[in-house]
Design a protein around this nucleic acid. Sequence first.
RNA 1: UGGGGUGUCGCCAAGUGGUAAGGCACACGAUUUUGAUUCGUGCAUCCGUAGGUUCAAAUCCUGCCACCCCAGCCA
Length: 563
Amino acid sequence: MIVNGIDIDSIVPENELEEEIIEDLKAGRSKEVVTRCPPEPSGYWYIGHVKAWTINFETAKKFGGKTFLRMDDSNPVKEEGEFADSYMADLEWLGFKPYKFVYASEAYFDEIYNIAEKMIKNGDAYVCDLSAEEVSACRGTLTEPGKESPYRNRTPEENLKLFREMREGKYPDGSKTLRAKIDMSHPNINMRDPIMYKIARQSHYRVGNKWCIWPQYDFVHPMEDCLEGTTYSLCDKGFQDHRIVYEWFVEHGWGKKFAPKQREFSRLVIENVLTGKRHLKKLVNEGVVSGWDDPRFPTLVGVRRRGYTAKALKDFVKSVGWGSVIEVTVPYSALEYYVRNDLNQIATRAMVVLDPLKVVITNYNGDDEEILVENNPNCENLGTHTSKFGKIVYIEREDFSLNPPPKYNRLVEGGVVRLKGAYIIKCNKVIFKKNGEIDHLECEYFPETKSGNDTSGMKCKGTIHFVSENNFFEVTIREFKNLIKKEFINPAKSLAEGVNINEMLEPDSLTERKAYAENFLKNAKVEDKFQFIRKGYYCLDKDSTPDNYIFNSTISLKDSYKF
RNA sequence: UGGGGUGUCGCCAAGUGGUAAGGCACACGAUUUUGAUUCGUGCAUCCGUAGGUUCAAAUCCUGCCACCCCAGCCA
C-alpha cells in the first residue's frame, strides 16, 4: 500500500504508535500522517523539546506526511514574539522543515470562536458567573465529586447572548467564563466542566487587542488540531489525563468522522541538569551565567554554542525511545556518548597545547619543516593540513614526567616518544629553573623516523601532540563543568524540597586559560568544530575576535589511562 | 479512600504463550603515529510480589505491594 509515495508495507514499526498508524492507514481511518509542533512562545527550548519535535517530525516524515509549526499562543500574558521568531532558527538548525508555520491566534481563533457558539447552541457549553475561587471550590477533590454551578442550566439563548457580550467586552476580567457542560462528578477532574474561555483584557503579541476573551488549552488544542487536519497529536505524558477531555471536545466541538488522536510519550529528564524557566532566568539575571545561550545551559542555544550538534541531540533522544512512564531520567553520560560519537565523525583534528613545556631539539638546525596532520583519521577524504616541526617545540606539561607512574608511555628522562606527525625524540636533559621547576627539556630527534617514511625500525610506546615555536598563536580556552554539583541528580526535585539554588551550583563551572594552538586554527569560523588531538572537542565561540580566538570545550575525549 | 499510568541488569529498552534483543555505563583483552576511534570478550537461570491456568508464562488469570502524574480562568 502506497501513501504519499511511501510503501507502508515496507515500514518497520518502531513503537506502538507506528503500529497504530499502519493499521489506521490500511483501514482507511486516515489518509496521511499529519503531526504538529505546537510550542507556546514563552521561553527557550531545552534538550527535552528535541524529543517532542523529533517524534512529531520524524514520525510524519517516516510515513510521507507533514508537520505544522504552530504557535500555541492562547495565553496573552505569557507569550512574546521574540521566542516565536527564534523557533524557526532552532528548527532549521535541528534540520526539521515545517509544512507550514502558523500563529494559532491569527489562524484559528475566529473559527474556534464559532465552534464555541455552536457548542453553546448544542447545549454543550454554558456561561458561568462563578469566580475563580468559587469554581475551584466547586471542583471537588481527587476523591470527592464536584458541585454543579448554579449557572449550569441557563438556556442556549441566554448563554449565547452572554457569551457574545463577553466577547464585546461588557464584563470585567474574571467575572465570567465559558465552560463545557460535561460532568461535575466525573472521576477524572479534568472532565468537571473545564473552562473554555476566560475574560482577560491583555494585549497579545500577535493579535493585539482584538480579543478580550481567550480560549483555554483543553478546548483550543484539539480544535486547532482538527482545523489543521492533524491526525496524531503527540504530546508528553503529562497530558495523559487530558486525553479523555481532548476526545470529548473533538466529538462535541468538531464532530466529524475524522478525529485526530492524542498519544503521549515520556518526558525526557537528564540527570544533573537544571531546567525550568524560572530558575534559569534567575541565573541569567544574577549574572551567574552570561545569558540564555551560555554554554553551560541546557537550552538549545546553549548546547549549540557549547558545540553539541543537532545530530547528536536527535540520536540521543531517539536512543531513549518513546517511553512508558511519565518521565524518563537518563544519566548525562548517555547524551555525551552521542555528542562524542558525532563529533568524532565530523570534527577536524588539530594540535593545541594547553599547558606548554618548552622542548629544544638540540640536533635540529635550520628552518622549520612542514609536516602533515590528518584532518580526520576516520574519514580520509577530509584530507590533511600542514603543520610544522622545528628546533623549538612545545609539548603538554603532563606529557613529561620525572617520576613516571606505572605504564606511563609518554616522555621521561632518557626515554623516547613520537611527536605526532613528526619525529621520535629522546629526552637527554632536563633544565631546571632556580625555583626547582622544569624550565625546558633538551631532546634529540631521529631524522630517519619521520612520520610517513620511518625507516628506523625504532619503537616507542607513546605519541604526543605538540606545536612548533614558529607555528602557533595564543588562544583562549573556556572549560566548563556542569552547572549543578554532582550530588544533585534531580535539581528540580531538590529545589522543590527547599534546597537553595546557590547551594547546588558548582563553584568553578567556567574556567578560562590560554593555550598554544597551531596556526592552522586561524582559519576557524564561529561554531566550527575541532578535536584537539588527545584532549577533546572544541568549537570557536562567538565572543572571539581576530586578536583573541576563544574555544569552548565541548567535551573531553574518553581517557582510559588511570594514573 | 478517586482517576490516569508504570513495574524486565546501575540507567534506558526490546519482548504480545515456546524457554530473557540491543544501547549506555562498567570490566578485561586486540589493533592503533590520538591511552581517542574501531574491534573482540564478559556483564539478568531471571522479568515488583504471592498464587493459579498450561506440556510450556516476563508474556494469560487472581490477589497483594511499590512508584509516578492529576484538583490553573497555564500549556
